[in-house]
């Protein structure tokens, strides 16, 4: 088991290194001068030169890479050109919205998908299965921004249970913050829950056909007992994979939902940074997202090993 963890940690470190090089190359070394790109085509040459010095573009490429990576390791992500504030502060502010939102949505989607998938698989081909499968079709097909607007229309405008958008901040109290995130989390969770339900259902159905399920029945387990005791854990591997992918997506891919609900999240930050050509922010946020994805994958790998003993011995 320890060997497995060490091995996964090594691959995590290598992935991070490769990702940082790729991001650096794409943003800083790709054709065109970052400084003149950031300032636009009408910029004065001396302004460009000043920015070049400020960004350290007159140094060698290796020095720039090392100081960028070194800065990130020590918590210094540089200063946003547009806002003139430390990038690390901007990201931290947004993270306090995006991370809870992603976790909230993921929890909701898992809470919906597990029971729904198990319910459908246990009633394969029956009316319950058809209803669940039909609902997941719908869940995948409905665009989440439309669904978000419907939620606003019903729960904010008509029923007035929630506010239509904005985020009061966590300093106004935990429940206030959660309340503001509820509609966005539901809007985000719906399509994810639909996908996860389908994965859960088909994964369980595969397992239900396995020989060891028959063995379990021969021991005297009822169908339901066999499903819970032997089916579920075996069916988890593909489900964990999807959950990992979904978390990474929810963290940064919430941009449309953030727009609908006026949430100051990471998605909006990167969108604004791109439109304002603030490369320093873009670079840092992308690296951070890559970091999050890789760490989540690492956690998923550990979860695999916890679920399946065969993976612990294989290296």
């Amino acid at each position: 088991m320890l060997g497995y963890i060490v091995k996964r940690l090594i691959s995590l470190a290598i992935s991070l290194f490769v990702a940082s090089v790729v991001i650096f190359v794409v943003v800083e070394i790709a054709p065109g001068d970052p400084a003149s790109f950031m300032l636009g085509i009408n910029a004065q040459p001396d302004t460009v030169a000043a920015l070049r010095t400020e960004l350290g573009l007159d140094q060698s490429k290796l020095d720039r890479y090392l100081s960028w990576v070194g800065g990130m390791l020590t918590g210094d992500f540089g200063t946003s050109y547009t806002y003139r504030t430390p990038v690390v502060q901007m990201i931290a502010d947004r993270m306090w919205v995006s991370l809870p939102l992603a976790l909230y949505a993921l929890t909701l989607s898992t809470l919906i998908a597990f029971p729904a998938g198990i319910f459908a698989a246990a009633r394969r081909g029956g009316p319950g299965d058809l209803a669940v499968t039909g609902a997941t079709q719908l869940g995948v097909a409905i665009p989440n921004f439309w669904f978000a607007m419907m939620l606003v229309l019903i729960f904010a405008i008509n029923l007035r249970w929630f506010s239509a958008g904005g985020f009061p901040g966590w300093d106004k109290g935990f429940w206030g913050g959660m309340k503001a995130l509820t509609l966005p989390a539901i809007a985000l969770a719906l399509p994810q829950a639909a996908i996860l339900t389908r994965v859960m259902r088909s994964s369980l159905l595969d397992i239900l056909g396995e020989d060891f399920m028959r063995t379990a029945r021969a021991k005297g387990l009822t169908e339901r007992q066999a499903l819970w005791r032997h089916g579920l854990r075996n069916a988890l591997i593909p489900v964990l994979t999807i959950i990992g992918l979904q978390f990474a997506f929810l963290l940064a891919g919430a941009i449309i939902i953030e727009q609908v609900f006026f949430l100051p999240g990471l998605g909006r930050l990167i969108f604004q940074a791109i439109t304002q050509r603030d490369l320093i922010v873009v670079e840092s946020v992308v690296m951070l997202l890559v970091f999050a994805v890789i760490v989540v994958n690492f956690l998923v790998d550990l979860a695999y090993a916890a679920v399946d003993p065969r993976l612990r011995t294989r290296t």
Binding site: D211, F212, R214, A216, G220, N234
Partner: peptide
């Protein structure tokens, strides 16, 4: 269900897949 396993046991052909791997 009460009879299976208690009064009547069964052994299968394929031992490689007849046991729960986890």
């Amino acid at each position: 269900c009460d009879l299976r396993g208690r009064e009547i046991g069964m052994v299968f052909q394929e031992p490689m897949t007849a046991l729960n791997p986890v």
